[in-house]
């Protein structure tokens, strides 16, 4: 499968500051790719390079088979980089109208995207009167205007209230399931965990991990609190490798086998007081990776 975005050895230097340091990144067709990193890690700089706004110092960058910033590539890419920027004296509708003129998009598409982001009712109001959440939604509408193959969204849930964040997550998930490819930058790890297929984690300009979300989080484990513990451990070892954490036992099995494990333990006369699945949150992994990186740098 040909990657839609292929970045190799990407470096961007501003004077003495290395904003992006040898980043490799691959986004596959149809996936929702989460680009994670703390503030100042180099996420927005990388996305600006992908959209042709800034030139890399070195490295190879291919977007949709072409160079970033080429008319052909831009015509198939929708993006919202950093905060949504529009003309404050124009209405949301007029802002989209003029972007449609630039991009050569039919007028009816404007109504479609306004409906999609639930902004049709306020479309004729000036952009300067919009709340932060409405501005974000207009930014997403603008990104979708060209019905692009690749959507690049930089922190799209910034400033949204919980309901707005939920709606935005749903929208991004829908974009991903519609065959579109989404490259999503965020520092909201729960959000990324919920909607992304793969993630890349960047820290201090360097890519520290790029994996499938589930791979990154590791296998699911069944946590068992049982008595007597020795007998329980012996039985659990039939299902997989058993680890002991404090006074619980953990075995790597799929959640579909939890009932079977319980049944076998109870059948052997073992009292089971706790049994649940656990997995590492993306947040734990993120902090693990970014903290290690900082420690290495320091």
């Amino acid at each position: 499968m040909d990657a839609l975005v292929e970045v190799s050895g990407l470096t961007k230097r501003y004077g003495d500051t290395l904003a992006v340091d040898g980043v490799d990144l691959t986004v596959l067709p149809g996936e929702v790719y989460g680009f994670l990193g703390p503030n100042g890690a180099g996420k927005t700089t990388t996305l600006r390079i992908l959209t042709g706004l800034i030139a890399p110092t070195s490295g190879d960058v291919r977007v949709l088979g072409g160079k970033p910033g080429q008319a052909e590539v831009l015509g198939r890419t929708g993006s919202m980089i950093e905060s949504p920027a529009f003309y404050p004296y124009l209405s949301g509708l007029d802002n989209l109208r003029l972007l449609a003129e630039y991009a050569g998009v039919a007028r009816r598409r404007i109504d479609e995207v306004l409906e999609l982001v639930d902004l049709a009712d306020r479309a004729k109001d000036r952009f300067s009167t919009y709340s932060l959440g409405m501005k974000q939604r207009l930014g997403v509408a603008a990104a979708l205007l060209k019905d692009p193959e690749l959507v690049i969204l930089d922190e799209p849930t910034n400033g949204l209230d919980p309901a707005g964040m939920r709606d935005m997550r749903r929208l991004i998930r829908e974009l991903g399931t519609g065959g579109r490819t989404v490259l999503l930058s965020s520092h909201l790890l729960g959000e990324v965990q919920q909607i992304c297929d793969r993630v890349g984690i960047i820290n201090s300009g360097r890519m520290v991990a790029e994996h499938n979300v589930n791979e990154l989080r590791g296998e699911q484990e069944l946590v068992v609190r049982a008595d007597p513990k020795d007998q329980a451990q012996a039985i659990l070892s039939r299902f997989g490798t058993v680890h002991q954490y404090d006074d619980t036992l953990r075995v790597a099995v799929d959640s579909s086998r939890a009932a079977e494990v319980n049944s076998v333990l109870v059948g052997a006369g073992i009292a089971v007081s706790e049994l649940h699945m656990t997995e590492r949150a993306l947040e734990d992994i993120f902090f693990e990776l970014t903290t290690e990186e900082k420690a290495d740098v320091g």
């Binding site: 706004l53 008319a71 831009l74 905060s83 949504p84 972007l99 630039y102 991009a103």
Partner: peptide
């Protein structure tokens, strides 16, 4: 000052055209 240049430049036309 409004940052709209990045919005405009990520549409289709080249910088010189805009």
């Amino acid at each position: 000052t409004w940052g709209t240049l990045k919005t405009v430049l990520t549409q289709r036309p080249r910088r010189g055209t805009i």
